[in-house]
């Protein structure tokens, strides 16, 4: 019976984001939620467990406040959680997140058959953690799956690519990232939420894991997107094309 590991992330709920007066983003009244894509990952793992038996372990990295996210994730049907928690674990690079999760999976999760990740996180949407984690663990990775099944030690997955559906197989253990259309995540019932707090959660502190390396990304600023609409007409003559290019440069569209 398979042991499935699901990676999830507790992210800012974008509906609470506001535009700050200076053009940046106002985070002062934000709330958090389980990343939407990860709901599909959890649902898929629970669906497989319902069909085949086994266990589902959720794993996340975040500040201690993300404990609520662990509870939320467990209320969606997983059996146990691993919470890598430290006040410093905010705005981690994908490389750092992967380093932490890979160490935790190797040393604290035990043998597993499949790791499921959402296609990307709801906040950064870098789509890095899944493939990098597979690489770090030395297992096959199948990204952007719309349907998966496990049979006889093999993962079979449908991948949606541009214009085609690709069906691939990979030996287990493997990692798969799933697209939202793979399933419809459940809305946890009242008892599911109440039970979540009673499920086993292993909390790992920074000291329980090795170094992660420094950040490779540097955030210079976060700006609210501003939509501007302008309408200017150009002709097809040479002079007009030059005027068109100049207009794009003036607006900063072309460097």
């Amino acid at each position: 019976m398979p042991h499935i590991v699901v990676c999830f992330k507790w992210v800012i709920d974008e509906t609470y984001l506001r535009r700050a007066p200076g053009g940046g983003l106002d985070f002062s009244s934000v709330d958090y939620k389980l990343s939407d894509y990860d709901r599909n990952a959890i649902e898929e793992a629970v669906r497989i467990r319902t069909a085949l038996g086994g266990t589902v372990t959720g794993i996340t990295v975040g500040p201690p406040e993300a404990a609520k996210g662990v509870k939320d994730a467990l209320s969606r049907g997983m059996d146990a959680g691993v919470f890598i928690a430290d006040p410093a674990f905010v705005d981690l690079d994908p490389s750092q997140t992967v380093s932490l999760i890979a160490q935790a999976v190797r040393n604290h999760v035990g043998p597993f058959d499949l790791i499921i990740c959402g296609e990307g996180s709801g906040d950064l949407y870098a789509q890095q953690v899944g493939p990098r984690l597979a690489e770090a663990l030395g297992i096959d990775c199948v990204a952007f799956a719309t349907q998966i099944s496990l049979e006889g030690g093999t993962l079979t997955a449908q991948r949606r690519l541009e214009g085609v559906i690709e069906v691939v197989t990979a030996p287990l253990p493997a990692l798969v990232t799933v697209l939202p259309e793979i399933n419809t995540p459940r809305i946890p019932g009242v008892k599911d939420t109440l039970m979540a707090g009673k499920k086993p959660v292993r909390t790992l502190a920074k000291g329980d894991l090795g170094a992660t390396g420094g950040p490779r990304l540097q955030t210079l600023a976060v700006r609210a997107a501003a939509m501007e609409r302008a309408c200017e007409k150009f002709g097809v003559e040479e002079a007009e094309v030059i005027r068109f290019v100049d207009a794009l440069k003036k607006r900063g569209v072309l460097a």
């Binding site: 404990a67 609520k68 509870k71 209320s75 946890p188 019932g189 009242v190 939420t193």
Partner: peptide
């Protein structure tokens, strides 16, 4: 509580 908040949110989603 965390449970009350989560349950309220789930009801919103429902």
């Amino acid at each position: 509580t965390e449970e009350q908040e989560l349950i309220k949110k789930n009801m919103r989603e429902f």
